[in-house]
Amino acid sequence: MKKLLVFLFAITGIQAIAQKMEGMVTYDRTQDYVKIMSRMTFLSLDQKERMKATNKNYSSKPTQMVLYFNEDQSLYTNADEYWRSENGQWSYRNSDYIIRRDFKQETQSDVIEMLGRTYLIDDSLKTPKWKILNQLKDIAGHICMKAETEDPIKQQKIVAWFAQDIPIPAGPEQYSGLPGLILELDLNDGDVVVTASKIDLRDVSKELTANKKIKGRKIKSADYDKIIKDHIQTSMKAQENPYWTIRY
């Protein structure tokens, strides 16, 4: 009987043994506009280098994002509905961006504002094909391992660092599906870097269940991919940066 139980534990694996884990991660998201502009195929080397040189002394300020997670679900969104400048002179509304993942039901439900409208994307959970690499790094006090994948639509190289000691498959932006919580995400060699600054293990059931009604157009993941793909193609053709109007 004992043996049988052990065997059972082994099969059921992770859920059976891990302590109950839930909490909130605060991330700093930094977008390097100069690097992104440098990827525009319609700009010449001369223009790119000039832009880099002129903007050398300026760096983008990070925006704050939050991730609520428990073993079954996660929710990633803007830390504040509004962006505020440090001196209080300016504030503007952040675009809607709510990324929900349900690992138990294997569903995803996203609210993404882009191209002037809000889309509601509900579909079954899709996990990128991760490669696991042999690098270790400390992020916010957790030793993380490196994993890589790529975004076939935006053609971005994605690097994620996941915590060895937080066995939750959640992560920032639209990324998930690693053996540990993603604490840093790097899109295209630093174009966008999302790094955890604070991890707070606490009861977040309220935040996870809160459901603000947001109106929008209901689409499926495949439609979303198509919209993004078409937009990038059209913008590049029109020689405009597609990422002024969609999230990088």
């Binding site: 534990f9 992770i14 490669k131």
Partner: peptide, 13 residues
């Protein structure tokens, strides 16, 4: 290519 196929954790044994 080191692609992740499956993952889990060891039990208390």
């Amino acid at each position: 290519d080191s692609a992740l196929v499956n993952f889990g954790r060891t039990n208390d044994k």
